[in-house]
Protein backbone atom coordinates (compact mmCIF):
# COMPACT_ATOMS: atom_id res chain seq x y z
CA UNK A 1 0.00 0.00 0.00
CA UNK A 2 2.74 2.38 1.04
CA UNK A 3 4.72 1.48 -2.07
CA UNK A 4 1.76 2.28 -4.31
CA UNK A 5 1.20 5.67 -2.66
CA UNK A 6 4.87 6.52 -3.02
CA UNK A 7 4.83 5.53 -6.68
CA UNK A 8 1.79 7.78 -7.28
CA UNK A 9 3.49 10.65 -5.43
CA UNK A 10 6.67 10.22 -7.47
CA UNK A 11 4.67 10.15 -10.70
CA UNK A 12 2.86 13.38 -9.77
CA UNK A 13 6.11 15.17 -8.88
CA UNK A 14 7.82 14.02 -12.09
CA UNK A 15 4.91 14.98 -14.37
CA UNK A 16 4.65 18.34 -12.58
CA UNK A 17 8.33 19.03 -13.16
CA UNK A 18 7.90 18.10 -16.83
CA UNK A 19 5.20 20.78 -17.17
CA UNK A 20 7.57 23.21 -15.44
CA UNK A 21 10.38 22.31 -17.84
CA UNK A 22 8.10 22.69 -20.89
CA UNK A 23 7.09 26.12 -19.59
CA UNK A 24 10.74 27.10 -19.34
CA UNK A 25 11.30 26.02 -22.94
CA UNK A 26 8.17 27.94 -23.97
CA UNK A 27 9.32 31.13 -22.27
CA UNK A 28 12.56 30.86 -24.24
CA UNK A 29 11.31 29.99 -27.72
CA UNK A 30 7.94 31.76 -28.10
CA UNK A 31 8.10 34.63 -30.63
CA UNK A 32 6.95 37.73 -28.69
CA UNK A 33 6.45 39.00 -25.14
CA UNK A 34 2.76 38.13 -24.77
CA UNK A 35 3.15 34.60 -26.15
CA UNK A 36 6.17 34.11 -23.86
CA UNK A 37 3.87 34.88 -20.90
CA UNK A 38 1.73 31.93 -22.00
CA UNK A 39 4.82 29.75 -21.91
CA UNK A 40 5.76 31.01 -18.47
CA UNK A 41 2.22 30.55 -17.18
CA UNK A 42 2.61 26.85 -17.96
CA UNK A 43 5.14 26.75 -15.10
CA UNK A 44 2.75 28.60 -12.81
CA UNK A 45 -0.45 26.56 -13.14
CA UNK A 46 -0.45 22.78 -13.26
CA UNK A 47 3.29 22.38 -12.52
CA UNK A 48 3.20 23.60 -8.90
CA UNK A 49 -0.15 21.85 -8.29
CA UNK A 50 1.29 18.47 -9.36
CA UNK A 51 4.69 18.90 -7.64
CA UNK A 52 3.25 20.15 -4.35
CA UNK A 53 0.36 17.66 -4.56
CA UNK A 54 2.87 14.82 -4.96
CA UNK A 55 4.88 16.08 -1.99
CA UNK A 56 1.65 16.23 0.05
CA UNK A 57 1.10 12.52 -0.61
CA UNK A 58 4.72 11.85 0.46
CA UNK A 59 4.17 13.78 3.69
CA UNK A 60 0.92 12.06 4.64
CA UNK A 61 -1.51 13.75 7.00
CA UNK A 62 0.54 16.16 9.08
CA UNK A 63 1.39 19.82 9.65
CA UNK A 64 3.74 19.54 6.65
CA UNK A 65 0.75 18.89 4.39
CA UNK A 66 -0.94 22.02 5.73
CA UNK A 67 2.19 24.04 4.98
CA UNK A 68 2.44 22.61 1.47
CA UNK A 69 -1.24 23.44 0.90
CA UNK A 70 -0.53 27.00 2.09
CA UNK A 71 2.42 27.32 -0.32
CA UNK A 72 0.21 26.06 -3.16
CA UNK A 73 -2.61 28.45 -2.27
CA UNK A 74 -0.25 31.44 -2.14
CA UNK A 75 1.35 30.52 -5.46
CA UNK A 76 -2.02 30.04 -7.17
CA UNK A 77 -3.32 33.38 -5.89
CA UNK A 78 -0.19 35.51 -6.34
CA UNK A 79 1.23 34.25 -9.65
CA UNK A 80 -1.76 35.16 -11.87
CA UNK A 81 -2.01 38.50 -10.08
CA UNK A 82 1.67 39.23 -10.74
CA UNK A 83 1.29 38.06 -14.36
CA UNK A 84 -1.72 40.36 -14.85
CA UNK A 85 0.19 43.30 -13.33
CA UNK A 86 3.10 42.58 -15.69
CA UNK A 87 0.96 42.16 -18.84
CA UNK A 88 -1.12 45.23 -18.02
CA UNK A 89 1.99 47.36 -17.33
CA UNK A 90 3.50 46.27 -20.67
CA UNK A 91 0.22 47.02 -22.49
CA UNK A 92 -0.12 50.48 -20.93
CA UNK A 93 3.54 51.20 -21.75
CA UNK A 94 2.69 50.62 -25.41
CA UNK A 95 4.22 47.20 -26.02
CA UNK A 96 2.10 45.81 -28.87
CA UNK A 97 1.31 42.10 -29.25
CA UNK A 98 2.66 40.77 -32.54
CA UNK A 99 0.44 39.37 -35.28
CA UNK A 100 -2.81 39.29 -33.32
CA UNK A 101 -6.35 39.18 -34.60
CA UNK A 102 -9.03 41.06 -32.67
CA UNK A 103 -12.24 39.27 -31.83
CA UNK A 104 -14.94 41.60 -30.47
CA UNK A 105 -17.33 40.43 -27.74
CA UNK A 106 -20.51 40.76 -29.79
CA UNK A 107 -19.61 39.48 -33.27
CA UNK A 108 -21.29 36.30 -34.42
CA UNK A 109 -18.43 33.92 -35.02
CA UNK A 110 -15.44 36.16 -34.70
CA UNK A 111 -12.73 37.61 -36.90
Amino acid sequence: MNGILEAIAGLLVISGSLFVLAGGIGALRMPDFYTRIHGASLTDSLGPVLVLGGLMIYAGLSLITVKLAAVMLFLLVTSPTATYALANAALLAGLKPEGVVRMPADSEDGV
Binding site: Y34, I37, H38, S41, L42, D44, S45, L46, L76, V77, S79, P80, T81, T83, Y84, A87, N88, L91
Partner: peptide
Protein backbone atom coordinates in the same frame (compact mmCIF):
# COMPACT_ATOMS: atom_id res chain seq x y z
CA UNK B 1 -9.40 37.62 -14.28
CA UNK B 2 -7.14 35.33 -12.30
CA UNK B 3 -8.85 32.18 -13.61
CA UNK B 4 -8.30 33.34 -17.20
CA UNK B 5 -4.62 33.96 -16.49
CA UNK B 6 -4.24 30.72 -14.54
CA UNK B 7 -5.42 28.56 -17.45
CA UNK B 8 -2.48 28.66 -19.88
CA UNK B 9 -3.29 29.83 -23.39
CA UNK B 10 -5.46 32.69 -22.17
CA UNK B 11 -4.19 35.78 -20.39
CA UNK B 12 -6.02 38.79 -18.96
CA UNK B 13 -4.27 41.95 -20.14
Amino acid sequence: GNSITLTPGTLTI
